[in-house]
Design a protein around this nucleic acid. Structure first.
Lengths: 343, 343
DNA sequence: TTGAATTACGCAAACGATTGCACTTATTTA
DNA sequence: TAAATAAGTGCAATCGTTTGCGTAATTCAA
């Protein structure tokens, strides 16, 4: 019933009394095989549902043709932004005939190194990666690069490496969002961001700062906090609101944090958005679930993934020169909802 | 700088003036090679960071050793439950030395067939799959099975095929949830479920029905609706509440739908949970974001994924007999929050 | 009829690794 | 001293394909 052994060209050749070479050529529709034989062989193959052994094909072609598997390293899987990116990568890859091999770094440097090794062994044709928070050494990436495996960074890029990358426009995204808060009457805007050693965190902070300056406001350090998750937001926000001159708006580095702020602010009896405005960053599932719904900066993960895959495939197929570092920036979009006032 | 060409055994052999066979044996630490040579070869390999070409290894071993890549087919990626499952699969797979190859069916039968083909070509050692909603033929799965590729279904199983599977206990999960609604005083409980041609939808409905019966309530068909997303929920719920004898509770097939109900019910001025109770199914991101937070049945996607990977690897490695159909059921857990009353 | 051109195929080497077998030395035993 | 044993290597086939080259059979032109 279940004939484990796949049919090979050799089998077909034996059965039809021709050589393996003839079978190979017939199946690739080479004109150097007579029409009748070609058709006979193709028909036999079809009827016995032959399909080529890619392993062998790849081995034969390893010099010229790379594999068609793209390695994707993602810090987390159960995460709106990252799964959107994965979705974008998968869509682009599959539409261009590539498969994706996915591994989760769990934000750990060691795991990241392991994964690179495994992917290299599995002969991926290239790797799309967002660095783990943990990662401060780049030797594993350099090693890949010198082994000729194209690398594309997304989200958390590696500033020390001049590699291809696609990021969202954190600076402008934040700048626009904070400008919107100011333009709807907010004067004291708090900023909850991630630790500044990540490039994206710094860019968002700069966008915040410059939006304030642009509108003639001053930066009050007491309104700036390191905070990028809900639990921390719920912990530190009450104190923030107890200040003698509390904020009238919050910009949070992601939706999750914004929701934490919203929860606390509502519990403390403030009206959102009239007394306190809140703006997040991501536009994930959560944004339309809370009450009022969250104004937030849409991060367009699927687009990021698509661009990353596009660059990688370009690098693999030689459309882009191998030594070229392609850098793309995906524009964000401010989505206005109920946690901010409207002009 | 960037020497594309990987170092092969042949290179090492040439450089050290020995045969390829000797290199192979030395690297596998065979005692039949003299200690000095063995060490010299190993050192040379290490210094020039040689690593074996898996393609070639696999070709050589294709008879005995399957590959270590697991194919995973998922209907959607940007989805809490499915990304949780993916997370569980990835964790189990990577801890046991396997990679995962992911593809998204987009709920389309045609795409599903394509993917199966691609995965077969890429010589995955087995496939973990949730059927697309669309799928009603199973030939592609049977084809895989007869090619000797182990198959494990999760979530949406294929009832016509006696294959391994892991599902959550939809029946008991729903039964317990509806019982909880009844025990906290609800008498008219509406049911929003998916189309009954999916097994999981039917199981959930049966759980609902039996919970009613068990508590001496009767099933009112006018309270049962086909509805599994937020937009539909927001569309049909107002009419539901305008009935002369409106429901005092809702059970929804997923959190998203439950949120839709919650939004409408709150807007209509009902108090949740005092006048109307709501229970969802999933326990995803949304559940803790809405106000009040959602009582829901936790679906434990990561556990489902882990079990599925465990079965598949068992099948691949022969721990489980190849013809055996292992069926596992993951217990759900009712998470009580603010949208239902507490005893 | 003969040489050239064309057609249709097979041979065999490659891709990179593994492994049974044979072979050369060196060492031991009788 | 001859023969048996052991230790250390190499040869060559193999996994399933692809492909340059050679060659037999056929056709064509002169």
């Amino acid at each position: 019933m279940n004939e484990k052994q796949h049919l090979t060209m050799k089998d077909i050749a034996r059965e039809l009394g021709v050589s393996v070479a003839t079978v190979s050529r017939a199946l690739s529709d080479s004109p150097s095989i007579s029409r009748e034989r070609r058709q006979a062989i193709q028909q036999y193959a079809r009827e016995h549902n032959y399909f080529p052994n890619v392993i062998a094909e790849q081995l034969r072609h390893s010099k010229r043709n790379p594999s068609r598997a793209i390695g994707v390293i993602v810090p987390e899987l159960v995460h709106y932004y990252f799964s959107s990116i994965l979705d974008g990568i998968e869509a682009e890859a599959s539409s261009r005939g590539y498969q994706i091999m996915v591994a989760k770094s769990n934000e750990s440097y060691d795991r990241e190194v392991q994964i690179c090794e495994a992917m290299l062994k599995n002969k991926v044709c290239g790797i799309i990666v967002s660095q783990a928070k943990d990662t401060e050494k780049y030797d594993h990436f350099e090693h890949l690069a010198s082994a000729g495996v194209p690398l594309v960074f997304y989200d958390r890029i590696c500033p020390a490496l001049n590699a291809s990358r696609v990021v969202v426009d954190d600076y402008m995204g934040t700048m626009n969002a904070v400008s919107h808060l100011i333009e709807t009457g907010c004067k004291r805007i708090a900023f909850y961001g991630a630790s500044m050693n990540m490039v994206i965190a710094k860019n968002r902070f700069n966008g915040y700062r410059d939006a304030l300056y642009k509108h003639g406001l001053t930066l009050d350090e007491s309104l700036v906090r390191i905070c990028d998750n809900r639990a921390d937001a719920e912990r530190i926000t009450p104190a923030m609101m107890r200040m003698e001159n509390p904020p009238d708006a919050f910009f949070a580095v992601n939706d999750e944090t914004a929701i934490g702020i919203l929860t606390v602010v509502k519990r403390l009896g403030y009206n959102v958005p009239d007394e306190v405005s809140i703006c997040g960053f991501t536009n994930g599932f959560r944004a339309t679930v809370c009450d009022p719904m969250l104004t937030t900066v849409e991060q367009r993960g699927a687009q990021v993934g698509k661009e990353a895959a596009d660059i990688l495939i370009g690098l693999v197929e030689g459309t882009l020169p191998a030594d070229h570092a392609e850098k793309r920036i995906v524009k964000t979009r401010l989505v206005l909802r109920g946690t901010t006032r409207h002009p």
